[in-house]
């Protein structure tokens, strides 16, 4: 199953991924429209001592957000492995239990709509918009299993170990 991986060294903090993400999740599908619609990006770029670190949902094997969801809206799709609180039978109510549960801080409150929002891997898009938009190669969409390049394995390990 393909995962979004991060090569931290390559991220320059330009935030293009956040714009691409907002555009993809807007009705206009473009950056300017997304800004007008005030679409909140689902990927964030945190800063550690000024160094940019992209952060988005890892779509965990046993997602704590799914366990915490009291409406049943947050689910992990058996086929695609995508963890999402959208387009399921149940709907999100904005109780923020998933925010309390996610060890990555990858779920954001959308206070306006009163729902939690998170990466949905662009819901089946061949390559997620953030990855496609990344100019430096810091975001990659590759198969987690066959992926052996040392640096990226290291990153992935750091991400799972601290969780």
């Amino acid at each position: 199953m393909k995962q979004i991986f991060v090569d931290i060294d390559k991220c320059t903090g330009c935030l293009t991924c956040t714009l691409a993400c907002a555009a993809e999740h807007s009705s206009s599908k473009d950056i300017v429209g997304a800004m007008l619609e005030k679409v909140q990006p689902r990927i964030s770029v945190e800063a550690v001592n000024g160094k940019a670190v992209p952060l988005m949902c890892r779509h965990c094997e046993e997602p704590t957000c799914v366990d915490a969801c009291m409406t049943g809206a947050m689910q992990k799709d058996k086929e695609t492995g995508i963890v999402s609180n959208e387009n399921n039978d149940q709907s999100c109510i904005g109780c923020w239990m998933c925010i309390m549960a996610c060890p990555y801080g990858a779920i954001q409150p959308n206070e306006e709509e009163g729902i939690a929002i998170k990466c949905d891997k662009c819901n089946g898009r061949e390559v997620p918009a953030c990855v496609e938009s990344c100019h430096t190669g810091a975001l990659l969409y590759v198969d987690g299993k066959t992926f052996t390049q040392e640096k990226l394995t290291k990153t992935a390990k750091a991400l799972t170990e601290a969780s």
């Binding site: 704590t64 923020w96 998933c98 925010i99 309390m100 549960a101 996610c102 060890p103 990555y104 801080g105 779920i107 954001q108 409150p109 601290a162 969780s163």
Partner: peptide
């Protein structure tokens, strides 16, 4: 502001 509360929960749980 409850953003990223889970990160703290993880620190508590994993005793980091």
């Amino acid at each position: 502001d409850i953003r990223r509360a889970g990160v703290y929960a993880a620190l508590i749980k994993k005793k980091v």
